[in-house]
Design a binder for these strands. Structure first.
Lengths: 107, 107
DNA sequence: CTTATATTTCGATACGTATCGAAATAGTGC
DNA sequence: GCACTATTTCGATACGTATCGAAATATAAG
């Protein structure tokens, strides 16, 4: 996980519609949701949804699996886990940041 | 923390330049860095930096404090903490998501 | 009040993104 | 192959963002 990739993932979550898509998928749980199901719940044009889904898939935050003609979408937790890990580690969220400043990945 | 606010914060971190700014501030530790110091380290136009800083301050991820003519910038950890909390909670990063689906903050 | 320094605002340009409807594609089943 | 459904791609528009240099502002010092 480098800065560029983290920024891409953060940007893909940083759009209200996409964050809503992602959250809806999380709440759908392991079963996931077909694209059409997402479209009904969120109420946007299918083309717009497809556009956003592509970006979430590209950044690895969402996976898709075919079942006949429908595409099942699922939140991909390991990616979110890694992203949160990056934020907590590189950009340490906890106030115990004084011990950081290691010259490992500096600039 | 609602979806809109989380999206704004994620978007503000989802730009490589801003993420680099934020990370530089984190690594600067408690002392923080003046705007000019950031500009030297990152190597962008002062006006561009000011533009990005404004967005990070607006979303609460960075704070600023005057010291004479210089503005000291610091990473504001509580905001990042809340954001990570939102991601881990609402968009649960851990695979133990089956127990979620509480109708508390649903859409 | 003038000078000097640090930062922001302004104006402009280039580029990317969000959105939609319509058309095209993909996969299934007859 | 044909019809049917699900999804994506296409084309177009509107809007926001990133970037810069130059000018304006703010704070301090003399």
């Amino acid at each position: 996980m480098n800065l560029e990739q983290a920024a891409r993932q953060l940007e893909s979550l940083g759009n209200p519609t996409r964050l809503q898509i992602y959250r809806t998928l999380v709440r759908a749980g392991h079963a996931g949701l077909p694209v059409g199901g997402l479209q009904e719940r969120i109420g946007i044009a299918a083309s717009t949804l497809s556009h956003h889904l592509k970006r979430l898939v590209e950044t690895g935050l969402v996976t898709q699996e075919r079942q006949a003609t429908t595409l099942i979408c699922r939140a991909h937790y390991p990616a979110m886990d890694a992203l949160i890990g990056y934020l907590a580690d590189e950009c340490c969220a906890d106030a115990a940041c004084a011990a950081l400043a290691e010259p490992s990945a500096a600039s």
